[in-house]
Each structure stands twice: as C-alpha cells, then as structure tokens.
Nucleic acid binder design. Sequence first.
DNA 1: CCGCTAACCGACACATCTGTCGGCTAGGGT
DNA 2: ACCCTAGCCGACAGATGTGTCGGTTAGCGG
Lengths: 203, 203
Amino acid sequence: MGANPPKSRMRGPARKAVITATALKVFAEKGYHGTSLGDIATAAGVARTVLYDHFPSKRVLLLAVMQEENASLVEYIGSRIAGSGSPEERMRSTIDAYFSFAQSRPDARKLLFDHFAEDDPEIRTVRQGIRESRTQAAMALLAGDIRSVGVEPHEPIAEAMVELIINGLDGVAQWWERHPDMPKPMLVEGAMRLLWSGLGSQR
Amino acid sequence: MGANPPKSRMRGPARKAVITATALKVFAEKGYHGTSLGDIATAAGVARTVLYDHFPSKRVLLLAVMQEENASLVEYIGSRIAGSGSPEERMRSTIDAYFSFAQSRPDARKLLFDHFAEDDPEIRTVRQGIRESRTQAAMALLAGDIRSVGVEPHEPIAEAMVELIINGLDGVAQWWERHPDMPKPMLVEGAMRLLWSGLGSQR
DNA sequence: CCGCTAACCGACACATCTGTCGGCTAGGGT
DNA sequence: ACCCTAGCCGACAGATGTGTCGGTTAGCGG
C-alpha cells in the first residue's frame, strides 16, 4: 500500500501516527470485530507486533482512535459554527459544517457514527459517552429553536428531537457517500427544508 | 436459558423456528462478527452442530433471519398505514406504526437498522437491497408531501430527504430504548413537530 | 411392540487471531 | 568510528471459531 522498498525506520511518534491513521481506515471499513491487527499491520506496512510497541491491545487501539477522531470532529464543527446571524442561518451553517466534515473525513464519520452497535462493554461505554456529549452540544445549539416551537429544552422529548436531527443528518451523509455527485449546498437546502420549514408548509 | 430437563426432541420446523428466534436475539445484540454459532446454540439449548442440520453456514443463517424479519417489518407497517385522511394524518399514523414496531420487536429493529456497516460482501449486498426497497416504499408514501414543498419525487435530493426522515425516526427509536418511560404519543408528536411543522414555525 | 428415520451430539481437523518473548539492526548520540 | 538504544520482526503458545463426520437414540409409523 505504501512505498515499502526504502524500508527506513521511523521515530516512535511518526510510526504511531501511521498506525492510528491506518487503523482509522480499516476499523471504519470493517468494524471492530471484523478487523484483525494483522489487517491493520499489513495496511500500515509493518509487522503485526509493532502495533504492540505502541498499544497494549486491540481494544485500546480502537479507543485511542475513537477519542482522537471525536476530538477532531468537535474541533471541526466548533470552529465553523456561525456565532452570529439569525437562528435559521446558524442552523444552516451547522448543517453545512457537518456535511463538510463528512465529506472531508469520511472514515472518521464512519468510525464515529456507523458502528455504534459494537458489543465490547468498554467500547460501548466510551461510545455512549461520546454520543451523549454530542447530543448535549447539539442541544445547546438548538435550545432556542426548540423552545420556539413550544418545547422546553430540559424536557426529555427535546432530547429525542435532537436525536432525530442528528441521526437524520447522518443518514443524509451516508446517502451522500453513495451519491457523491450531489452538490453540498443542495443537500443543506433539502435538510433545511425538512427540519426548518417542515413537510407541512405550503409552497 | 430455556427449560432443559425435559430434553424432548422437536420436529424439524419447530427446532428451526427456535434457532432463528434465538439467532435474531443474539445477532441483534452482538452483531455478525461478534456472535459465534456456539453463542446461538447455547442460547437455543442445543449442540452447535444442530445448527448445521438447518443452515449450511453462519452467513446463510443471518441472511435467513434478516429476510424473515424484514418481511415481518414490511407486513407490520403496511397493515397499519391509514389509507385515508389528510396527508398529515397519514404521516402521523406511519410514524406511529414504526414506533410501535420498534417497541414490540426491538431485536428485529436492531438487526435491520443498527448493524448496517457489517463487512461481509454478500451480507452488505442483501442489506443494501433491503434498505433500497425500504427507501422506495417510504418515497411512495411521501411523494405527495415532498412535491408540496417544491421537490419532485424523482429528483435525487428527494431520496436524501427520505433518508433523513427514516434515519431520524430510527434515531428516536434508539433513544426510546434508552428512555422507555416516554409515552409513544409524545414521541409521535415530537417527530411530527419537527418533520411536519419544522423548527422555524412560530408558535 | 418393533424398526427405522430423523433429530441430536461429541470429537476432530483446520483456520485465524491475540498477545508474548527474545533477537536483530539501523542510525542517532558522543 | 563505535556504541547502544529504540525500532522492528519471526516464532511460539494459547484461545476461539467454523464446518465435517460418524455414532447414538427418541419416538413415530406400521
């Protein structure tokens, strides 16, 4: 996969970075149980045991990659939310930011969103924490809009509505991966039409 | 897990039914790669090799269960869609039907929706077919509503919007499983508020 | 009551995967 | 120029999982 012939040695941190980047790709594609450390090692161009020089186990490797990519997602979205503008504009820019992330880092999106039903208890716990923090962040963003349709943000139903929005948008991102020709602005427009205006609005 | 002592022999079809029912539970909980035939056999109260008397391989077993449960879902929803009433009423009853299904058959929902990123090529293909037919069915249901907001149902963006709705509703169903105290009518109301009225509607 | 089919199971062969251990050597530090 | 550490690897042990084969027996049909 990479340029093997040179066979040069890397420094620890550099090799570790190669490993996490490769692990992201493979885990995203095949899921936790579906990938072996051998898969990752081969794809990264090193012997399998090298992975153990950097991570004590397969589980810890996945966890490290998940934490890393989640931080990256948070940073990515956080840095491009429009602080000002109308509520509508703010929501539009957030949706736009998420779709941008999905486009520029498809593996990260898959790792964080597509494999939520893994069975390992410890992984489940971490994943649950990530999801909850994500839901809370979205809740904070949408609190005003939710209130404006007559639901108080602290009510449980508000959380369910936020889940609908998050999962719905990710569903669009998944669809986009299968239909990459669709221009992003059109997707944003379609999502806004549904979530902001609603299907019941006459035209 | 079951009443073992009697140790009575079952007829072929009855045993097969026990196996598929058990396989549904275990696959739904742990996913394809996460479950072994030993897990299923133990949970079903038989020796592992008995599974091979009914299915030639693990993959075929999963595929059989998926087809079966998908048929069940289609039948369930199809039989309770309100044929008459306003577009709004029709949408509400469909959402209600899906939430009812999610509540009465949680394992089936998980098997069909939560594990969409399995890696086995053949499984992927079948799963993709199931999803496409589901999207088309929803599209047929929503065609009128989609058109009424200015999007033609044959445009690709319409498909993306349907994906948003489906994935969003399933996100609510997932949330409901973690918060079972929420009464269903309230969930339906919340989903309608978002998808029908939209967040932008003043109150 | 008896035989025979179909249900059931234990044991085996083979493959794959995780994690460990000790050895080799590239290449930076001195 | 040499050392010696940090990066890299092959080989091994143990666990787990799939699929096969042949034997055993429950219990239905005659």
